[in-house]
Amino acid sequence: MNRFSASRKQIRALRLDRIATACFYGLGALVLLLIFWLLFTILGKGLPGITLSFLTKLPEEIDPGGGIGPMLFNSFYVLILSLIISIPIGVGAGIYMAEYAPKNRFTEVLRICVESLSSVPSIVFGLLGLAIFAELLGIGLTILGGAVSLAFLNLPMLARVTEEAVRAVPDDLRNASYALGATKFEVIRSVVLPVAMDGIVTGICLVAGRAFGESAVIILTAGLSTSGEMWDFNLFSPGETLAVHLWYVNSEAIVEDARQIADKSAAVLVFVVLLINLLFRVPLWFNNRKLKR
């Protein structure tokens, strides 16, 4: 007798389950379609018109046909500098939070610090860079200021992704390693990090992509202009990046082909970010192969 009422409930639950499944699939399909449409719009509009001379030429103020050479170079330069500064500290902080942090008030404070820092809007880091480098040190808007401010922005995100990746490593692996007499650092270096590397590298990908396209920080700390030369490694010259250039072209430029330049710059930006993601993943594949063997 009970079976009848139970089975009616079951039928309802099953039907609900099926409807929900269909809804989830529909949602996924919609989002995927949207993403591909977005990428197609950006890349399709810009990529066909890109030539080598556009990528390497100096920009023009008045005549059409200017390039984006110095901005593209600055983008890479600032990105690499900021990663050099932020990866050792960010990953170290993440490892501390996942492996060392004891369960006490101090750790709780640290955690609140990390979360607060990751909630700090990028524009505020821009203001901080402005205050430190332009106001306090008096060196104006420079590549160095941009890179350091960008590194500040990267830090909490790096720490967070590292912590999550390290936490996802099963405890069994750690215990096995401890049982073999390894010290804590040996466990981290030879067991935890290789296993967590997948997640950490993915995190660094996200951070690098975000940093490459970051514009609010760079506008305030590295400025809206370049030194006007290609291959300018000087840390103290102004460093407008490609992302900032896209903003500049849209808001202040008076060249007649501003729209084309913007389209192409957007396409280059997105293309490079995709490329960065691919390049960062190459060492990952090797690592995976090593683990499987």
């Binding site: 977005l38 992509g209 992302a243 896209l246 997105v270 993601n277």
Partner: peptide
């Protein structure tokens, strides 16, 4: 298949979103 595609979306810089919005 979905995860890398979502990564593509993360890769798009905010200024490009703004430009597309515009």
């Amino acid at each position: 298949a979905i995860r890398p595609v979502l990564d593509l979306l993360v890769g798009i810089p905010s200024i490009v979103y703004g430009y597309l919005g515009l």
